[in-house]
Amino acid sequence: MPGSSASAVTAALLRGVERREEARRWLLVLPAGLFVGVLLFFPLLRIVSLSVWDPIFTLRHYGHAFQDPVFYRVLGVTFKVSLLTTVGCLVLGYPVAHLMAHARPAVANFLMTLVLVSFWTSLLVRTYAWMVLLGRRGVINNLLLAVGLISEPLPLMYNLFGVLVGMVHVLLPFMILPLYSVMKGIDRSLMLAAQNLGAGPFRSFLWVFLPLSFPGVTGGCLLVFMISAGYFITPALLGGRTDMMMGQLIELEVSQLLNWGYASALATILFVVVALLFLAYRRVATLRLPSGAS
């Protein structure tokens, strides 16, 4: 029939239009793709190849790492610090995000600005600022001494505490932003419904808000943990003798020992471990949140 063949032609034309539109959308992400490809993916490959070609194919750098007690210590410290930083950010960030999600728009914007203010100065400056605050003769110790609460300066820096303070401070926005965006999407009538159905404020939170904010918790924790795992400046400046993280070890191998192969192997291992952790966490997160959750 002529009619049906005509409509077949129309359908084919429409498909063509659709395909062209999709091609155009892909074209638009090309710059970003190239950027990431050249500046991220390529160096990553280069690092991996450095770790196994020295000058011919070898796994000795990996063998070295897995036999070196220092490697395990540093890996352990890296995960301990990252985990504690993540927990710290979550504990401090959750209430802030909660407040922001429930505040009037003007107040929420103001709070958002406060959260982002810390991005306005460099990481190094912020870390040094903490040194001024936490030092033996720093602002906090001087204040406590002056008030008479302590008789000797507290060791606030050059230890795990100092590292955590500095890292939590720097990484807090990375926790708050995903939390806030998820919380903002939680329908407020759900909390009203929970209260209407007999749940007091605490139980409404526990049963309804908390589980619904879980994707934000997952996202924020992942982000903070992964950035923490690669951290190097803050622990180097605020940490003590035993607070050496993988980033510091890698920096040492590169800048002091020019041991590129070993440094690359360490970097690759860190990358793989964090990636595995990421996948595992995602799996757990999706299990906890079945298809019903938004």
Binding site: V70, T242, M244, L252, Q256, L257, N259
Partner: peptide, 14 residues
């Protein structure tokens, strides 16, 4: 001996 000493040093430090 730099590499060896650095490793020893780090092991001792940690």
């Amino acid at each position: 001996n730099l590499v060896k000493m650095e490793e020893r040093w780090n092991a001792w430090l940690l």
